[in-house]
């Protein structure tokens, strides 16, 4: 077994996993762009904290770097970029009109049940100390996916997209103690370039459609 495996540590990671899932639900229900960004930053924080604890429990030095990275990218840089964009595009007061929050929530619960049952055979095969959390990671991925489908604003879709990546990273850490360093760096690079591109995109959309509301996106539906 790994050097520092202790019940307390495992309980901590479990708790953080629960927070992550809770925040995924919160994002599903959140209406205001700024609160969504805040939830996203919090999710990033809990994610990096959980990676840090797993690093301590398992003694994998790579994971410390990964935790540091995640913190820099998901807690500081991306929320900053998102907030800056929101202010500069002057959409901080935008309110998403969500249809049927209760139905979305029930769907979300269904997704969690599905993820856990799908992850059960995987967890049994895992040898990591935190293996029971693979289901949580998968649930976060699918919940963010659901959040993206139910949104109509460009900014909120992107936040859902980034939150999805959080869920993936969480699964990777808990199933395997993280992917090889070069792959994790590559993924981080993709996320970073992706965020620059959607930043450019927001301005293009705004310039052409005079709004960031995707309900104006209808031309391509027909032909």
């Amino acid at each position: 077994m790994s050097p520092h495996a202790s019940n307390l540590g495992i309980e901590m990671v479990n708790l953080l996993g629960a927070f992550l899932l809770l925040l995924a639900f919160a994002m599903l229900a959140a209406r205001r762009t700024l609160s969504l960004i805040r939830f996203f930053a919090m999710q990033g924080f809990f994610l990096s904290a959980s990676i840090f604890i797993v690093a301590f429990l398992s003694g994998e030095t790579n994971l410390y770097y990964s935790a540091l990275f995640t913190f820099a990218l998901k807690v500081i840089l991306l929320p900053y970029i998102l907030k800056e964009l929101t202010l500069r595009l002057d959409i901080q007061r935008d309110i998403e009109t969500l249809v049927n929050v209760p139905v979305t929530m029930i769907l979300g619960i269904g997704i969690v049940v599905f993820s856990f049952s799908l992850a059960a055979p995987i967890s049994e095969a895992a040898s990591t100390v935190t293996r029971s959390l693979i289901g949580v990671g998968l649930a976060c991925v699918l919940l963010s996916f659901l959040a993206m489908i139910t949104r109509k604003k460009a900014m909120t879709q992107i936040i859902g997209f980034l939150a999805m990546e959080n869920g993936l990273l969480f699964s990777a850490t808990n199933a395997t103690y993280g992917m090889p360093m070069v792959v994790e760096l590559g993924i981080a690079l993709d996320v970073l370039i992706g965020s620059i591109i959607f930043g450019i995109f927001f301005f293009q959309i705004r310039e052409t459609f005079e709004s960031l509301d995707l309900k104006f996106f209808e031309k391509l539906k027909e032909e």
Partner: peptide, 27 residues
Amino acid sequence: IEAAWKYFILCGVGIAQALFGTILLYF
């Protein structure tokens, strides 16, 4: 612009699933 957005979001979401598959493979 609409086409590019659709491309970005759909392929991004899709390929995120492939990353999960890759994680499982690694696992």
